[in-house]
Computed example of a mutant assay.
Amino acid sequence: MQKSYANGVKNKGSILKNILNKNFIVSAIVPVVIFYVFDKFEMTLSGIIFSGLWSIGVVIVNFIRTRELNALAAIAAAFSGIGLVGSVISKNAAFYFVSPLVGNALVSLIFFLSLLSRKSLIEVIVDQSYLKNAPEKIKNDKDHKFVWRFLSAIWGFGNLGQAILGAVLLKVVSMSLYYAVINIYGNILTILLLAFSITFPKIYFKKKRQKI
């Protein structure tokens, strides 16, 4: 079972390369450029609207193309939409900039709360994908549970750290710099967390097999 998991992980590695090449530019760089251009012409609210619509559009287009909804991307898009609507109604850019931080804090809370339940969030995701048809003995294996709980904690701390960093940046730097840093950092963090989530179980289970 661990071998089949590793094979599935290997296939995911090639997908990760595509994320770095194409999706990163589309989802991280383009909205920053859009906002920066409008902000330079003192059209901050317009920059927020168009960059926000772009970010939401990316999630929708990816869903239409793949018929798969990335949970984290969907949450980010939802909060982006809330911030966008709030900014347009109030004509205050703060709504749009604060909403992603709330989203990160909420995602972090979900990951941490899942550690208190019988199954952590990562374990639920893995059970529904890689280990969908696996025997209960495998699913309840203490090594598997340790890995999934550890990764859930890592994702929780990662999102919490992003929320804290964003809150600090929002206070000390300009809006355009904040938006650029937090958007690019957020996408890089997600890629790193995905990469770690892929490689750590593979290395952990390999070492376990070597000890047997």
Rank of each mutant, 00 (worst) to 15 (best):
M175T: 15
W148D: 01
K171E: 14
M175L: 11
L109W: 12
V102H: 10
I138K: 00
L116Q: 12
V124H: 12
Y185V: 14
I184G: 04
V168Y: 14
I184W: 06
N140T: 14
A78S: 15
S87P: 12
S80V: 08
V124A: 11
A195Q: 08
L106K: 01
Q128L: 06
S117E: 12
L131D: 06
I82P: 05
A180R: 01
Q162F: 02
S120W: 09
N133M: 00
W155K: 02
G81M: 05
I138T: 14
V173N: 06
Y179L: 06
L72G: 04
V126E: 08
T190C: 07
L113Q: 13
H144I: 15
L72K: 00
L131E: 09
G166C: 04
G166Y: 00
L193G: 05
Y185F: 15
A73R: 04
M175S: 14
I82V: 15
A163L: 02
F150K: 04
G81C: 08
L131K: 05
I182W: 02
W148E: 07
I184Y: 04
G186K: 00
I125R: 07
S90T: 15
L84W: 02
I110P: 03
F150H: 08
I184F: 08
S117F: 07
V98L: 12
A153K: 10
I89R: 08
I125N: 11
L193R: 06
D141S: 07
N92H: 06
S87V: 05
K132V: 11
V85D: 12
Y96C: 00
S108V: 03
D141T: 06
I110G: 06
E136L: 11
A167D: 11
T190Q: 13
L192P: 12
G158F: 01
V126L: 08
S114C: 03
I110C: 08
V172D: 15
K139W: 07
Q162I: 06
W148S: 10
D127R: 02
A163F: 01
T190R: 03
R149Q: 11
V168M: 08
S114N: 10
F95C: 05
Y178S: 03
K145V: 15
A93D: 14
R118A: 10
H144Q: 09
V107L: 11
